[in-house]
């Protein structure tokens, strides 16, 4: 157990009164550019487990939604009945914290290895691919007007161009990624109706308990785009972990995922377009790793993991080229 940071305790007293206390503080270690603190908010006899998320690092060319936009989006999808941790409040100028928000704590497993293999989840595992299809169909069916604040994001305007611009800003100069971007430019599928896209929907960002998916996390890549982009990202080879043969996120074949999506959305899955977005997924994943190493090399945010990301780009490029050659599906 750790002590509650003073700025968190102060932020809570501002909202819940001088008697509000923070107990049972836990600080998960893998933060990336966010600091996460799990704690109990105690008011008199009532106690509520909450999570604080603060953005500790933001690059000028960050691909991520600002914390206020994340909070706004989570409030919208929560109100629509989507499984997302209940947003509680956002930090403001009166707080000494970094930009961020507090939301409800949700029980469940997020580690991919456990979701794919833990005996405790053996019962629910065969249902997960279909559940992912249902959830994505639900999300894509939400009224877009409420998410209009995402319309101006580069990813909403042109997802491929947004990646190309970021890649250039991280230094460019990688022929394999250029080949991927060129392939994407020459093989664009027919435009699909724009929907609210989660943008990082994959094993690792869905919280799973024995009774099913308890929450969908990490909304910082949300934008407006093609429904097939979300399905393609879930099916991207890098997100199949140790089961590259199981297209649907290492959970199952694509069949139950697509069938559930079609049942709930009433829309036929464009499998060719999903495959296009899996290529996009590899290009995007390579560029996200370039982003991590670029922060390391510039000295803005150094670290062992970010250094490893730089060398891992070659692994993703290899998968991308094998896919473009038709040797990987």
């Amino acid at each position: 157990m750790s002590a509650a940071p003073d700025n968190l305790a102060a932020a809570l007293r501002r909202r819940y009164g001088a008697g509000a206390r923070v107990e049972n503080v836990a600080i998960p270690t893998l933060g990336g550019s966010n600091r996460t603190i799990v704690f109990d908010l105690v008011e008199g006899a009532s106690r509520r487990r909450l999570v604080s998320r603060e953005e500790t690092y933001r690059a000028a060319n960050s691909p991520f939604l600002s914390p206020p936009d994340q909070f706004r989006l989570m409030r919208f999808v929560f109100a629509q009945g989507f499984p997302v941790p209940e947003p509680v409040f956002e930090y403001d100028a009166g707080d000494a914290t970094a930009p961020g928000y507090v939301c409800a704590y949700v029980e469940g497993e997020t580690m991919p290895k456990a979701i794919l293999h833990a005996p405790a989840l053996a019962q629910v595992r065969p249902t997960l691919a279909a559940r992912c299809g249902e959830l994505l169909a639900m999300l894509h069916g939400m009224p877009r007007a409420e998410a209009a604040f995402l319309d101006g994001r580069p990813d909403s305007v042109d997802a491929v161009a947004a990646q190309r611009e970021r890649y250039d800003s991280y230094g460019g100069g990688r022929p394999a990624i250029e080949l991927g971007l060129r392939w994407l430019a020459r093989n664009k599928p027919q435009a699909a109706p724009p929907v609210l896209v989660h943008g990082d929907f994959r094993v690792g960002n869905i919280m799973v308990a024995p009774q099913g998916v308890t929450a969908v996390l990490d909304w910082e890549c949300a934008h407006i785009g093609s429904a097939w982009e979300d399905l393609g990202w879930l099916c991207t080879r890098a997100w199949r972990f140790d089961r590259p043969d199981l297209t649907a996120g290492g959970l199952d074949t694509a069949a139950p995922l697509f069938a559930a999506y079609e049942r709930v959305s009433g829309t036929r899955v464009d499998e060719e377009a999903v495959r296009y977005w899996t290529v996009f997924g590899l290009v995007r994943w390579a560029i996200l790793n370039l982003m991590q190493v670029s922060g390391h090399l510039s000295g803005e945010r150094r670290g062992l993991v970010f250094a490893a990301c730089g060398r891992n780009v070659s692994l993703i490029e290899y998968d991308l080229l094998m896919t473009l050659k038709g040797r990987y599906a």
Binding site: P175, A176, N312, S314, L315, Y318, L321, K325
Partner: peptide, 13 residues
């Protein structure tokens, strides 16, 4: 490029 990437992969993993 695939040959070049494979050579880099042999170093990395």
């Amino acid at each position: 490029e695939l040959d070049a990437a494979a050579a880099r992969v042999r170093i990395v993993r």
